[in-house]
Amino acid sequence: MEKNAVIAENLSKSFKKVNAVKSVSFGIGKGELFGFIGPDGAGKSTLFRMLVTLLLPDEGKASISGLDVVSDFRKVRNILGYMPGKFSLYQDLTVEQNLNFYATIFGTTVKENYHLIKDIYVQIEPFKNRLAGNLSGGMKQKLALSCALIHKPEVLVLDEPTTGVDAVSRKEFWEMLGRLKHEGITILVSTPYMDEAILCDRVALIQDGSILRIDKPDEITKSFGKPVFAVKSDRTHDLILDLKSFRGVEAANLFGNQVHVVMNNSDVDAGQITTFLKEKGQTSLDVREIEAGIEDCFIDLMINKS
């Protein structure tokens, strides 16, 4: 895949006291669905705002389809679709008026690019005369995406489109992104939800303004390199404490009703852990070796960085 749709080289940005983005570099191919995964305050929004020409980088440079985001910012704006963290909808305009407005300011019409938004828009079309302010979170999200797409951008930048949205709407949203990818649109999306990483072609794990790792999600998990066990018992809270006292345990973290245990060497098997926990008085035990997930990797990278 050509890596020329979006390029960033050593981008840095500071505000007063905070180094929001610290020398970040990456290249994103045309038609790629690229995720920036990290918690709030990691610098995702600042990074995106530099890419969409809203902020000037302190250092480094970036380009979109070969156009520099600083010197060619007007041209960049023509080929960009941007959805900011707060859904940028006019609450006092109807669904249809919002869409028409964004179409006209980009010098196009809803009709012209209707095929692009059809899948998404049909779900909210029955409510086209409703004020945007009266829509639910999931619906607002769909409308905002339609608005960002209506001028057929080459690159779509979505800042936390799924934050605060329920699991069903989130799933649907990702399905829509998958379809847009097939239209050849390059998509950059940021999210604090680790489980959304596997839905991207490639991801950058980002924390404290720096990228911890860039790769395909399954490459990241495959290269974890340390054995991970999923442990279940009927007393989850004590289980973590018990596991932390086991030799060779690097980390023990809650994952749903299980505890994921990361070992620092590979000479321990599930049986040994079971025996140890039984001695500690744990019952209804279930210990299994598993493959690490993105969240395991993220936690591991966070710990090893600091």
Partner: peptide, 13 residues
């Protein structure tokens, strides 16, 4: 305040 200014600025306007 609404955040819509970001989109207006990013548009060709």
């Amino acid at each position: 305040e609404l955040g819509t200014m970001e989109v207006l600025l990013v548009s060709p306007l």
